[in-house]
Design a protein around this nucleic acid. Structure first.
Lengths: 219, 219
DNA sequence: CAGAATTGTAACTATCCAGTTACTTGCCTA
DNA sequence: TAGGCAAGTAACTGGATAGTTACAATTCTG
């Protein structure tokens, strides 16, 4: 999610002055630590160790623990928005477009469980950090606007029913993708099944796509 | 979620020996504290204050902070299972039964945001506390079995399509209800809308019910 | 009314942890 | 090659916190 050249410097000699790379490895280590343990459980010393640097650097670049967490959250949003911009669904048939958006979202969550965890952490804290971020505008998703166009063409073609709020469709996709993965631990225990077996994941993906299409289907 | 006679004893004199009630007020205060702050952010002294008792009592009855948290989690599961047992969907028309289950789940989550938060906390910790609970069996939901019967009758009547895993329908309902409320803070910031306005909540409830029914509809 | 049980008080311990300080080391460039 | 800059070291401070201790106070029942 951060610059791919970022790598912990554990077991390495100093490689020279590179503030951008130092910040990147700190951010990556902090992402893992905050995602695994939340704000209250994350430890500054552990983040420094995981990054292969020292905590003087953390305070030098990010100010304090919360400043580091905010940078992690902003980077996480930047990453998903960057990935979303690579998706262009407006040039496809409506049903295909919607399927593609649904699969993209599912696979993004599947490949980025740390993003799910960070969202849960931020909601636990009532989004106070997100609200205070000057980069808020960058976190908006253009996909709802694109989705609006897709739904409109679907209505025109007679495959989608009219009167659907695109935000609701976006939230339907996100709901089905997020909940399954976010709650995989408790659900696996409660239902006595391993929800993260490859077959189950593939089955849920098909169920997700089918449900989203069914929810907008013309009668 | 806990015994209704539980009430904080703040500002009250000692009201006599009542270990059941003392434990109940501690559990209620602890539920609020763990739900609002997670395990790492919750404070034992604050729980005692919120309960109107002292922390000697917390350690006396629950052993330690984690023991208290586990008791909170078990009580939360007991409460939703108790509420679920009052629901009988097997005697209704399949579509009505499914609608009722969907609305019940939505309203349960709406009325119990602390349950949502505790589930997120427990998943952050990979359900290690849940796994270790001797009350695990009590946490299973009988509703999947009932749902299986409802789906079967729906297929027989020709209103539902065949081959649907009842667990997937249950997860669909839970997904749509859970995600919206769990992420209400970040989503409200990102999309610039207050997702918890009464009109939005009512609209989402209708969308939830419609989507669940559409997902099982016979073709 | 005495004793048992529940609940309370307040000080305490030991540990943890965010953040700071004062310096040192190493790299790179003019 | 000297100096500036990035990065590192390690001790430290101050405060927070879970959990404990040793007793006291209150309630209620046999």
């Amino acid at each position: 999610m951060v610059d791919s050249k970022a790598q912990p410097m554990v077991g390495r000699q100093r490689t020279g002055r590179d503030p951008v790379r130092t910040q990147a490895v700190i951010l990556e280590a902090a992402t893992a630590e905050f995602a695994e343990k939340g704000i209250g459980g994350a430890r500054v010393d552990t983040i420094a160790q995981r990054a292969g640097t020292n905590k003087r650097m953390l305070y030098h670049y990010f100010g304090d623990k919360i400043g580091l967490y905010v940078a992690v959250l902003e980077a996480a949003y930047a990453a998903i928005r960057s990935a979303e911009r690579k998706l262009d669904i407006t040039q496809k048939e409506p049903e295909e477009a919607l399927s593609e958006l649904a699969r993209f979202t599912w696979h993004y969550f599947l490949d980025h469980p740390e993003f799910i965890s960070l969202l849960n952490t931020e909601n636990l804290h009532r989004a106070v950090h997100l609200k205070g971020s000057p980069r808020l505008r960058e976190m908006h998703s253009h996909l709802v606007t694109e989705l609006e166009q897709v739904l409109k063409r679907g209505v025109e073609l007679g495959v989608f029913r009219a009167g659907i709020d695109p935000l609701n469709v976006y939230l339907t996709i996100a709901s089905l993708g997020f909940f399954y993965l976010s709650n995989r631990h408790t659900l696996s225990v409660i239902f006595g099944r391993n929800l993260t077996e490859p077959e189950r994941l593939a089955e849920w993906e098909e169920h997700l796509v089918r449900t989203v299409l069914a929810s907008v289907k013309a009668e």
